[in-house]
Structure formats: structure tokens, C-alpha cells
Design a protein around this nucleic acid. Sequence first.
RNA 1: CGGGACGUGGCGCAGCCUGGUAGCGCACCGCCUUUGGGUGGCGGGGGUCCCCGGUUCGAAUCCGGGCGUCCCGACCA
Length: 471
Amino acid sequence: MAKAPILAPRGDDFAQWYQDVVAKAELAENGAVRGTMVIRPYGYGLWERMQAEMDARIKACGAENVYLPLFIPESYLRREAEHVEGFSPELAVVTVAGNKPLEEPLVVRPTSETLFGELMAKWIQSYRDLPLLLNQWANVVRWELRPRIFLRTTEFLWQEGHTAHATQEDAAAYARRILIDAYRDFMVNVLAMPVLVGAKTARERFAGAVNTMTCEGMMGDGKALQMGTSHELGQNFAKAFGMEYLGDTGTLQHCWTTSWGTSTRMVGGLIMCHGDDDGLRVPPAVAHIQAVVMVVRDDDAGTVAGEGRRLVAELNAAGVRTRLDDQVATGFGRRATDWELKGVPVRIEIGPRDLAEGAVTLVRRDERTKAPAPIAGIAETVSGLLAEIQGNLLAQATAFRDSRLTDVASIDEAIEAGRTGFARIPWELVGDDGEDRLAEHAITVRCLQTPEGGVPDGDDGPLQAIVARSY
RNA sequence: CGGGACGUGGCGCAGCCUGGUAGCGCACCGCCUUUGGGUGGCGGGGGUCCCCGGUUCGAAUCCGGGCGUCCCGACCA
């Protein structure tokens, strides 16, 4: 009965467990080049669902999609001093092409602020062209010293938004809107991850930004994962790239810009937030397979498999993303285990016994509970169950986060609390020196919040720092 | 880029110390059996032992140098 565990126990070796899940759930594997990854169909399906949900929210915020080139002239990067300084250690640069040395090296984009800057400067003439709200889905390359699949890879997939505005206020409001209405809404309601939002400290800021805001998730080992960032870039890039517009008073002014991104890192976050000893647990809203109809055993007439196919069709027609598993040649236990590893939210088991009762057996992945349900009205039953699972995963993740979020009143206490989770400490007790002390224990300030847990906007009075170890 | 561990069929490992031409489990293929929680049996296919060089009659094994993976730090979505 007690088989050897398929995965390293999550509590014993979280890092090994994570890698086991990625491999056994067939999400991804390493590419031939260090730091690159091959995303397999099941993993890519998760990303596609994330893309669809994020894209809809980005568009709801008014941005349109574009595609810009992979290669950036090296000289573009150099135009913004902090930006080039921040990114130069991570750049991959093409110096030879067509068998000849290039006159000007080409940078493989690590992010596209500079290209957007150059183009927006060309496209913007007057205040009537503003705001200019753009987004692109692309791959980027940052030469990583310590790759971790999904979490930190040399090449990754992401969306990067870039906007230009007439005023500082407008830019600030938009960067905040993306963070809250697109990112946080997506992470909480789709990924079922109760992320904390806030502003980065000066040392954690994006290279070239005047303000970086972030969504921070808590992983199953209590460490933080930065899930998405939104930056106010002030006029830094506008000045570097000559992004100017003629105002309604006839005077030429520099634009105010923002940029914001989320990446395939979120797939890693999903695994580490919801996974358990049996594998992944995918929230129904991101699951590209929400339910699997599993034929336990067929009869000679093929009645059970036939009913299984009918159920799949009925569920798909009702909007439940459903797949059939009629591989009865493979043992029941094996197939059940595999679907659990992949984290499919609901398993609908059907065998001769069920069929005789006019019922199926519903198994919830989140709670591992089984219950019979009548075949009549199955789509409605499953839809309701999916909604319940979605809510339960968020509730569990929230309860876990709260249990590991400790209010403290000193750096020493913060260091102690940071061993197992997040610490919340008044920012005036930390400061730049405090950040140094925390760093000695591999703890960083993940974000600064208002006392109510909101994103600071400049005059909120005393702030709280959320500090933790992080990925 | 520093410190540590490890590279042997697809995956997980043994063999290495004490050189003699590669083995186990899982997976895969065939047949039978089984099917409500990783079925069981019989038969079968598959390996440049990470790479390069050295020592030797002979290297998975000993020596040197690379490369890669994982863990811990510094840097980052």
C-alpha cells in the first residue's frame, strides 16, 4: 500500500519537491543552453490561460498590443545611464552575424524600454497623441548566474507594457491602475494567490525608474516571490529618447512614462503556492483542463466509455474544459495519480457501478474528497464545484499567508520571523541601514505599504515594510 | 562569479576505492492477466559510462583539463 513517494516530500526538501513537480507534471524541462527552458504542452497550457486572462485585463485598461524586434542597437541601452548600468551584467550581445563582425553590437532585449522610447518619441507629436498605451507579449533574455526553472531563466516569456502620458499624475495613476486592476486582480481572482502590493525601496527599484510597485506572493516555504511589477519612469526615458509633445498652450514638454511586466515566473509561483505532496493543484480559472472524465473500467459493449464521451461533450458544451481519460489498459491508480500530479481540479470517475446508479464519482483535487453525484445536471454540479475549489484555494493560501505574516518591532525580530515567513515592521525602524542588516540574513524589503496594506502614494504618513527571504 | 555535491539506457541509481569491456528498479515494446488508488507474470528493445587529453596490453574505474546539473551565497522578473 505504502508506495515510495513520487515526489520529494514538500516539507522535507521544498526545492527538490518543486523540481519534481515540474518534471512529473510534465510542465517543463531544461533547454540545451544553460538557463533556457522547454515548456511542455501542459505547462504551456497554463501560460496560455494566464496570457488570455492578463491580456483581457490589460486591454480593459486601454492598452493595445504591438510587437517590437528582438534585437536592440547597443547604443540605445546606453542612453539612459541607470538603465544601462542596471542591465549590462545580464546582457547577451550579438557581435557576429552573417560570418562577419557587426559594426554595432546588437543586444538581445532584456526589456524594451529603450526601443519603446525611440519609437514613442517618433509617434508622439502633440498632447492629442497621449496617453499612448502599448503592450507586447515577447521573450526576453537576461543572462542569469543561477537559473531556476520558471522562476529565473535566462530566456523567459512575458508581457511588457509601456505607456507615455502628459503629466506625472496621469502616469502615476496608470502605473497604479495596472498594478491593482490588472495584476492584483488577476493574481487574486485567477491564480487564487493573495498577493501583497506595495512600493519597492530605492535599492530594489527597477533600473531607471523613479518608483517601482510590486505584487508579492508567499510561497509554500514562506519565501516571497515577486509576481509582477509596475514602474513610474518619471521623465528619465522621455529625456533620454526625446519623447516630447506640444501641449495645448503651445509649449514643448517631455512625456512621463511607465512600464510594467509579468512573466512565466508566475507559473513557478502557482506551483509553489498551491502545490502539495501529491503535486500541483491548479485553480480552476487557470486550468486548461478543469475536469477529467476518467473511465474506471469499461464493459464489453463499451457502454461506460460511451457514456464518458457523452459526458465530456456535455461538459465542454457547458463551458467546462474537460478531457476524457479512457486509457483503461493502464491501471486505475496510476492514472488517478497522474491527474493528481498535474493538479486537475476535478476528476469525474465513471465505472459500471456508477453507471448502474445513474451517477458518477466526483473527486476534488484540493481536498482529495470523493462523493457520488447524479449524471443528470452534471455540468451544473461540476461548475459549482469548480467555483468552490477556486474559492477554497484562495482561502487556504490566504490563511497560510496570514499564519506566516508576523508584526514585529525590531530588526532582530524581523530576522527571526523572516526565517519562516514575512515580517511586517514600521519602515522608520528599518531604513537603508536596516536593509543592510537584513541583507546579512538574506532578507530583503519586499515592499512598503500604508498601514492599511495599500500602495503608498507619497503622503501617507508612516509606512510598513514587508520583509522576507525571496526567490 | 565564490563554496559544496553530483554527471553511468528516457528517469532514479549500483559498479569506481582494489582497471579486464556494464548491471538493477521504474518507464518503453509484445503476449497473457488485471482494472473502484502507482496490477501481476513471461519475453524483448535500448547505453559514445558528460567531453577532451594522459597513464596502461587494457579505463566507467587512475591522473589532468574542460562542460553541465543541483544546493548554499552575492546579482536579478
